[in-house]
Design a protein around this nucleic acid. Structure first.
Length: 876
RNA sequence: AGUCCCCUAGCUCAGCUGGUUAGAGCGCUACCUUGACACGGUAGAGGUCAGCGGUUCGAGUCCGCUGGGGACUACCA
């Protein structure tokens, strides 16, 4: 039956208890029901590197909102959780951890090191689950996956073998992005570009057999030790005659050719002479191929100079070598100048080390055959990206995509299933070969592992039992419906999933993608530890509860970046508090539980009740619509406005006289109780996806048929509840009350002072409304009498609002200068508006072209304004 | 360099396919401890919608240009 709520809203007292109940009851697990349509979504697997940050809180809150909404809306709903092994990132974290104990991974060896990472992983995936739990994420934990799980690893191997057999995976010697810190190759998307202040050095190279010199311009003088040519533009008059000659490379004993190359050289830039280092620069590498130049590697995998760089430089760090080279050039008078130069350089996003382009034997995915269908899928709408503006970014990238470097020289990850024999044969099969199938000799497995994103690219189907196409989850839940993730992994992850999904399952892995923005601080700054403006989601949950955090994130999420500050969170935690208190009030008057409540008899309802139900119906429509558009901000804001400013501020206040027995009959009271219960019930259900805990805590006390609000049906619109006439009358009521309060405050009266009000509507019916519902006005506008008959007293303050003439009789005419000024300003504003309206309505073009409703509105406004201005002047 | 986004109240933002008196939250001012809530209530101040030009009967909304800010991609000897 009826239960009381605690006086104080204290989220900590119930949130964790409620989550445990949900999980225990199995509400997160989809119920196999062929009658229900399915809805599925996979979590963007967080890295097992550490704690979740506010961005995770955002993306998972948004997913949970959609998931809870769909589940309540009758879908057989799966939200599949899990974590990503995050190759480099995790390996780095654990290495750092070990380094603190003075251990390097090489000390303990690959096997022991990987074992350490597994320990780390166990610990952190538990922590991640705990954090998601605190947020209220309704993930089906019975299906939790990890990218290195047995099943997922099988999928990875299957895909690798298949792509290899299809000729889409190949191994080759090529220019790659090398990170000397992590000592591994990385893919193009992992390289971030940073603008840096640098120098453009002009260095003289003496031409052999003459006393001429060519001046090259370079930002990386240390790579000159690996130069194997100097290039000029073939049409450049200054140097064309030198093509074919050779040059003495300073600091070395080598002579290198002068070549003409129109692709590499822009005669306008620098000196028009380019040094060519095919082993350490992407463009030089290609130039080298065009001219069959030697590739002389002078920088090693650790970023130190190799013996080939010469005795003076061997073993120096590349930046140290740069200083040494410059000093020696200076000594020899070959360094002409060093001009300031700002350019962007490639940085490894994970460790901030400057990338060293290097020629290396690596594994690649031939991407064009995969990209084509993925472009088409977005173009033809089988995958929709929201906000839509990201589509052009997607196309732009996909159309210019390069082959994907997938091998990593790491220990943590899926080891590449390729086996080599001493005779140079490579075997790639589903099962490990015991000997080389071609020559019978012993084989050893490739030591490299795969790029983390190779396995995450399969996530929507590898988590569901694929490649077994008969796996129950795969059959039921694949393809998934919605993907919610940050825009920062559009290329890393989203694009790869689309490519892999289409290639291997023949279907796009999801039909809708919502890309959320970055969470920033309230000044719009990126959150970072160094700036100290980081908000830890768990701190917020501990302080104000998960519901307030979730609602704040939702109401801020329009698809753009989100400025999140303490004050904003505080503001919305006030809303949760408001819900709590309004519910407490309602529950003091509700006498039936939801289960026992009789159906509402529509035709016995008073206008006020019909009005609030009509508004509730409108907000129900709005929330459902906005959620389907991923407008979390609009959906949550509509609920906020309705619950606080319509339900609490107006409906509850209007119901009080009846509820408290000051007005109306017992029947009226019973109906008000019933409607209060109805509105509260539906509001809580509408709010549940946004604030699951507080709505559950309150709803439990309302005694519903279902054991939990999270499996109760989500409200849908009902045509019967629409009532435009009730809305019109209540709008007028609200406007009249506001007008009276306004006049009261203007004249400096306090709420204790009471006046007489005369109201007259445009029709008898309207006037009679206030004869029947005078108590609404007397209570809320604090009046002692409301009359609807006869004429208003001449000395009364008169106004016209929403088509009703009102006249307030104040006990005495206290008029301040301030008030006079205000009225004068109001009249001036009105006159201006009226003049504009008059002009508009006198315009034949307007009358002809504007839709009739616009003209009518303008005419009505004109009429009301005229009357009103007259009254305001008379009030003076 | 290319693509995209943004510039609306002191701050952070909403304003959908052009049409009422341009809205919200926070902040600010005044009043109110009214039997759910001071994390409350009531009233109020505050905007030449970045600037210029165009289309239109009508532009915060569409188009162009300028200025300012941001994101991404590519290149940069």
């Amino acid at each position: 039956m009826k239960e009381e709520l605690e006086k104080r809203y204290d989220p900590a007292s119930f949130e964790q208890r409620i989550y445990a109940t949900w999980e225990k009851e199995g509400y997160f697990t989809p119920i196999a029901d062929p009658e229900r349509p399915k809805f599925s979504i996979v979590i963007p697997p967080p890295n097992v590197t550490g704690r979740l940050h506010i961005g995770h809180a955002l993306v998972n809150t948004l997913q949970d909102i959609i998931v809870r909404w769909k589940r309540m809306s009758g879908f057989n709903t799966l939200w599949l959780p899990g974590t990503d092994h995050a190759g480099i990132a995790t390996q780095m974290v654990v290495e750092k951890h070990l380094a603190a104990q003075g251990i390097s991974r090489f000390d303990i060896g690959r096997e022991a090191f990987v074992e350490r990472i597994w320990e780390w992983k166990e610990q952190h995936s538990t922590e991640i689950k705990d954090q998601l739990t605190r947020l209220g994420a309704s993930c089906d934990w019975s299906r939790e996956r990890f990218t290195l799980d047995e099943g997922l690893s099988q999928a990875v191997r299957y895909v690798f073998v298949k792509l290899y057999e299809d000729g889409l995976i190949y191994r080759d010697l090529a220019m790659v992005n090398w990170c000397p810190q992590c000592r591994t190759a990385i893919s193009d998307v992992e390289v971030e570009f940073e603008e840096r202040q640098s120098k453009l050095y002009h260095v003289d190279y003496p031409v052999d057999g003459t006393d001429r010199r060519l001046t090259v311009a370079t930002t990386r003088p240390e790579t000159m030790l690996g130069d194997t040519a100097v290039a000029v533009h073939p049409d450049d008059e200054r140097y064309a005659d030198l093509i074919g000659n050779s040059i003495r490379l300073p600091l070395t004993d080598r002579s290198i050719p002068i070549i003409g190359d129109a692709i590499l050289v822009d005669p306008e830039f620098g000196t028009g002479v380019v040094k060519v280092t095919p082993a350490h620069d992407k463009n030089d590498y290609e130039t080298g191929l065009r001219h069959q130049l030697a590739q002389l590697q002078v920088i090693g995998e650790d970023g130190r100079m190799l013996p080939a760089a010469g005795e003076a430089f061997a073993n120096l760090d590349r930046f140290e070598a740069r200083r040494r080279v410059l000093a020696m050039l200076e000594e020899q008078g070959l360094l002409l100048k060093a001009q300031d130069y700002t350019h962007s350089i490639g940085i490894h996003g994970k460790c901030a080390t400057v990338i060293e382009p290097m020629v290396s034997r690596q594994w690649f995915v031939k991407i064009a055959p995969l990209a084509g269908p993925a472009i088409e899928a977005v173009r033809n709408g089988s995958v929709q990206i929201t906000p839509q503006s990201w589509e052009s970014t997607y196309f732009n990238w996909m159309e210019n995509i390069h082959d994907w470097t997938i091998s990593r020289q790491l220990w943590w990850g899926h080891r590449i299933p390729a086996f080599h024999c001493p005779n140079g044969h490579t075997t790639v099969t589903m099962d490990d070969p015991t000997q080389c199938p071609q020559c019978g000799s012993a084989v050893t497995q490739e030591t490299d592992v795969l790029d983390t994103w190779f396995s995450s690219g399969l996530w929507p189907f590898s988590t569901m039992g694929w490649p077994d196409e008969k796996a129950a989850d795969y059959e039921t839940f694949y393809p998934t419906d919605t993907l919610i993730t940050g825009f920062d992994i559009l290329f890393f992850w989203v694009a790869r999933m689309i490519m892999m999904g289409l290639r291997f399952t023949g279907k796009a892995p999801f039909s809708q993608v919502f890309l959320n923005g970055l969470v920033r601080d309230e000044q719009g700054q990126k959150m970072s530890k160094t700036k100290g403006n980081v908000i830890d989601p768990l701190d917020v949950v501990n302080e104000v509860g998960a519901d307030a955090l979730r609602f704040t994130l939702a109401v801020s999420a329009s698809g753009r970046d989100i400025p999140l500050g303490k004050s904003r969170i505080q503001g919305y935690s006030a809303f949760v508090n408001k819900i709590w208190n309004a519910s407490r009030f309602a529950m003091m008057h509700i006498d039936d539980s939801l289960k026992d409540a009789p159906p509402i008899e529509r035709d016995r309802l008073r206008t006020v009740e019909r009005w609030i139900l009509s508004r509730l119906n409108a907000v129900t429509a709005e929330v459902n619509k906005q959620l389907s558009l991923f407008r979390f901000d609009e959906a949550s804001n509509a609920l906020y406005q309705f619950f606080w400013h319509e339900f609490c501020d107006w409906y509850i206040e209007m119901a009080k006289p009846v509820l408290l027995g000051r007005s109306g009959t017992d029947d009226d009271r019973k109906l008000a109780h019933r409607v209060l219960l109805e509105v509260l019930d539906r509001s809580l259900r509408l709010l549940h996806p946004f604030m699951p805990f507080v709505t559950e805590e309150i709803w439990q006390k309302l005694g519903g048929v279902e054991p939990s609000i999270m499996i109760a049906p989500y409200p849908m619109t009902e045509k019967d509840l629409e009532d435009p006439d009730a809305e019109r009358l209540m709008n007028a009521t609200k406007a009249i009350i506001t007008a009276v309060r306004n006049a009261r405050a203007e004249r400096g009266f306090t709420p204790k002072d009471r006046f007489r009000l005369h109201v007259r509507g445009a029709s008898d019916r309207d006037s009679n409304f206030f004869r029947d519902y005078a108590y609404l006005l007397t209570d809320l506008a604090r009046l002692d009498e409301v009359s609807t008959e006869g004429e208003p007293p001449a000395e009364a303050h008169q106004d016209v609002v929403e088509g009703f003439h009102i006249a307030i009789t104040f006990p005495e005419k206290v008029v301040t200068q301030e008030q006079l000024d205000r009225v004068r300003r109001e009249i001036e504003r009105g006159e201006k508006e009226l003049a504009a309206l008059d002009a508009k309505l006198a315009n034949e073009q307007f009358l002809q072209n504007a839709p009739p409703i616009v003209v009518q509105t303008a005419q009505a406004r004109q009429a009301e304004l005229r009357t009103r201005l007259g009254m305001l002047q008379q009030n003076q």
